[in-house]
């Protein structure tokens, strides 16, 4: 029990639990596991003047999904407050060395690097590109591809959808380019 509190949960526990989200949401109300649609629902809810794509009844379509996202927020809060989440982040030795080489301080790491996410960093070019532009591309790309990691990689591939495989190949192509080409340039 103590180990479950202090150590990161292993893949063979976390993965199957995440996989079970797919049938759980289907059985509760026929909903498909997916999170990025919430970004669309929020835009539809708050924007005064909306393009056609955002004109729909977000309450009818998206309430369950927004409540689901509020749950994810709450789960994150519970884990950080009472279950020692977000502490003792462990990454491979090779990753520590690679990130140290391009200028990250790996002696004590949290969930996100201060080199990109601190207020000072956000106002620098590297933090702005990684977090503001990065976040923008996540929102833009998820809607363009009609799904994100949950909707395509987990839900879509669970349903053996070929379009999801195409999207997931794109996800990784983009991620590899960002990691191996853009990030080193930003940090230099």
């Amino acid at each position: 029990m103590q180990d479950l509190l202090h150590e990161p949960w292993p893949w063979y526990i976390a993965g199957p639990l995440i996989g079970l989200l797919v049938p759980t949401l289907l059985l509760i109300g026929g909903k498909q596991f997916g999170i990025s649609s919430n970004l669309k629902h929020i835009c539809s809810a708050i924007l005064p003047k909306k393009p056609d794509f955002l004109r729909y009844d977000w309450r009818a379509v998206g309430s369950w999904n927004l409540v689901f996202a509020a749950g994810i927020f709450t789960g994150g809060f519970i884990a950080s407050r009472w279950l020692q989440g977000g502490t003792s982040i462990q990454v491979a030795e090779a990753t520590q060395q690679a990130l140290t080489r391009i200028g990250f301080d790996m002696r004590s790491i949290g969930l996100v690097p201060v080199e990109l996410f601190s207020l000072g960093s956000l106002l620098s070019l590297r933090g702005f590109v990684a977090v503001v532009v990065g976040g923008f591309l996540v929102g833009f790309g998820a809607r363009y591809a009609d799904g994100c990691t949950s909707g395509h990689a987990i839900s879509g591939l669970s349903d053996l959808q070929p379009t999801s495989l195409l999207a997931v190949v794109g996800f990784f192509a983009g991620g590899l380019f960002a990691t191996h080409v853009i990030l080193p340039l930003l940090m230099s």
């Binding site: 919430n38 591309l137 996540v138 998820a142 591809a145 192509a173 991620g175 590899l176 380019f177």
Partner: peptide
């Protein structure tokens, strides 16, 4: 949309280190 949108999403995922969930 799947491979172009997916690659754009991937760029953001790699930089920001987080997807929507």
């Amino acid at each position: 949309r799947f491979w172009i949108g997916g690659s754009i999403f991937g760029l953001g995922w790699g930089l920001a280190g987080a997807c929507p969930g």
